[in-house]
Each structure stands twice: as C-alpha cells, then as structure tokens.
Design a protein around this nucleic acid. Structure first.
Lengths: 206, 206
DNA sequence: CAATATTGAATGAACGTTCATTCATATCTG
DNA sequence: CAGATATGAATGAACGTTCATTCAATATTG
C-alpha cells in the first residue's frame, strides 16, 4: 500500500515561501497579493504558509528583516576597511546601489513597502531601518572626525540627504521603462554628496 | 483609461468629502480606510460619495492632483522672480518644505501614497509628479546656465538628489514623535545641496 | 521481519468578515 | 409636481485564516 513516491521537494519550505512572496509582492504589491497566490507561486498549499508564518504581515516583515540584516552584515567589514571620509562614503553608496541592482524584484518590494502605514508592518520594519540609519550616520561622523567633511556638518541632516538621494535614485531606476545601469549613478552621486558634505575633492585647488 | 473626475456642480459636498478623505487616509492609510468611514467623516451617506467620485481610487487621485496643481501654480511665479542659481534653489526648497509643513495630514497622505503600486493610482498620479520633476529640473538647469552651478552637472541626477533629500526630510519629520519645526532644515539642506551642485558659496575663499 | 500504530507536515475546502459598489426609496428645490 | 440630490441598507465578491482530514514516513510490537 505505501508506495515509494518521489519526495515532494524536501527543500526547506520556508525559504521557498519567502522567495515566492518576493516575486508575487513585486508584481502585484502587498495588498494586491493574496496568500493563495503566494502559496501557488511557492508550489505549496494555502494552509502550509500558515505553518511557517502566523500572519500575512509576517511574510513581509520577515522578508525585509532577513535581507536587510544580511546586507548590513556584509556592509560593516567592507566599510570599516575603507579610509574614513570620501572613500568610505563612496563605498557605502556603492553597497547601497549594488544591493538593489542585484535583485530588481527585491528592490521593488523594498521601495514599495518601506512606507506602508500599517502599524504592524512599521513596527517590524523600523528597528532594521533604524540600524541602517545608524550605520550611515557612523560613516558620516567618521568623516567629520577625520576632518574630511565640514566640521560643523549636521550629521543627522546629512544622513537624511544621503538616504533620500540614494532612495530616490533606486526608485527612479525602478520606474524607468528603459532600464539603465543603476551603478552608473554611483560616481556622480557620491561626488555630489561628498561635496555637499564639505569635502575638498582632489583637483580642487585651495 | 481611468476616469478621474465626476463632478455635479454643487455646494461644498465634494470639497467636504475630499477633506474628509485626507483626514481618514492620513490616520488609517488608503487600504485601511473604507468608503463608509470617509463618508461618515464627511457627514454624508456612503452612496453620496459615489455621486462625486466613481471609484475609491478617484478620491486619492483627485486629492493628489488638486493639491499638487495648486502648489505648482503657486510656485511658478515665485521661482521665476528669484535669481537663477542658489537663491532660486533655496526658494524651491522653501516652497517644498512649507507646503508639507502647513498641513501635516496632507503630508502624510502624500508621503505614504506617492509610491502606491496600484497601476490605476500610479497612472493618475504620475503626470502631476512628472510636472513637478520638470520644475525642479528647470530650476537646476537655469542655475547651470547662469554659471552658478557646475557646468558639467548631471541635471537629471541632481534633480533626483534634490527631490530625494527633500522627500526624506519630510518623511523623517512625519516619523518623529517629538515634532520639530520642519522649516529649520531649510537653510542647511539648501546650502548642502547647492554645494553639492558645485555652487561657490559666499564666504568661500578661492 | 512483517504487521500495526503513531505522528505531524501538508492540504484545500469552508468560514466569517470586510468592503467597494449599487439601487430602491426618500428628501429637497425651483 | 418634476427633476435633481441624498440616503443607507443590501449585494456580492474577495480574502485572510482555520481546521478536519490525508498520508508518507517512522516507531512499536509480536
């Protein structure tokens, strides 16, 4: 009676469901995606998703936390190895853009849903975002202390300008119908920001 | 093609409904707000909203278009009257911040929903946003042509940096629990951006 | 070793709620 | 009175979530 059947894809289901969620959310948005659609994309029954995630929101929050945590872990050593000031700022911008450039669907989900007003979502997402903001702040602060940026620079504001600029560049890249290379913005934007922060750039006689 | 407006020329009902929508959307978000809730807030029956707006989306789109159009109309002459370069850029930043500072709820709706993935919303909103981006681009371009900004400035990129920075500052202001004065960011951010665009600022010896 | 019992991951139909939209009816207005 | 305007209960579809059931794999027993 028990027939040797091919194992029904043993790979861990949780990862499959999360990956499916990225694809479905990216295409239809969070509110436009049903749990049934995510399950179907993952090749899993609707109810199975609830064995791994208690609520729909957990899908999005977990997704977000996993990827951002991994990104931050990857960033930290790279940044620390770089000279404070312009080089380190440039590296940070590079990491930011590269992260989104390497997965367009994930980028869509991040850009679309960072601002969801749902309190449960915001609650799960805020700490991760705050950690990234701290990282940015540290990079700028180090530049100030090294004398590479203006001594009276408002680090809080500079941090917002940095993130806002990068964020808008990524959003513009996603919006564009004729997709250009995201990384091509790196050098000009890093220069522009560094200059805005009061860096004296090479080739600037003084 | 989305039909966006539907207006029996009548008393102030339409305006009341739109104003109510701002309040309700600001508090619960677009998806978290029911038509019944908007109607109740407006002191109107559910069905009445459908005499003025064919779809729920039209509420958000109309809202957005009305306010942005009025904002742009207010901006244009003010900017034209200002010297190209740093002063005009400063004025633009001032207008941007002031617009949001004067209506926190409207700001919330704008910040939350600019990125809605819903195609019908995006379609209604995009042209207005594009017009504003053009305005920003014009201001920067004028600065370049007047020799106030770097001659080789990438105007497209500068535009994104400008908008992204302003946008993030407004978002941060909304996120903050201890609400500070939004306008206090004006001078430092305008200076920072102008410097980033290659402006030679007064007090800069060379 | 075979027969039987147990397990729990997986399933997907069903449930209950929410909500945009409609429409039959009522009220106003000129 | 007639046409326009307003009403809010009714409708029906969509969707998150639940749960009784299945069944392959594993453990137990004789």
């Amino acid at each position: 009676m028990p027939k040797v059947q091919n194992a029904p894809v043993t790979g861990d289901k949780e990862a499959r469901i999360l990956a499916a969620a990225v694809r479905v959310f990216a295409e239809h948005g969070y509110h436009g995606s049903s749990m049934a659609a995510v399950a179907r994309e993952a090749g899993v029954a609707t109810g199975t998703t609830y064995l791994y995630f208690d609520r729909k929101q957990d899908l999005l929050v977990t997704l977000f936390q996993r990827h951002l945590t991994e990104y931050m872990a990857r960033c930290a050593p790279i940044l620390a190895a770089e000279t404070p000031g312009v080089p380190r700022l440039h590296r940070l911008a590079e990491q930011h853009l590269a992260f989104f450039a390497e997965d367009r669907q994930l980028a869509t989900v991040f850009q679309i849903h960072l601002r969801e007003p749902d309190p449960l979502l915001a609650e799960g997402i805020r700490p991760s975002v705050a950690a990234y903001f701290d990282l940015i702040g540290d990079v700028i602060q180090a530049g100030v202390e090294a004398g590479a940026f203006a001594a009276d620079l408002d680090v809080r504001l500079a941090r917002q300008v940095f993130f806002g600029a990068m964020d808008e560049i990524v959003t513009g890249w996603l919006r564009a119908k004729r997709p250009h290379a995201l990384m091509s913005a790196l050098d000009p934007v890093a220069t522009m920001l560094a200059q805005g922060f009061g860096a004296t750039l090479p080739g600037d006689p003084s």
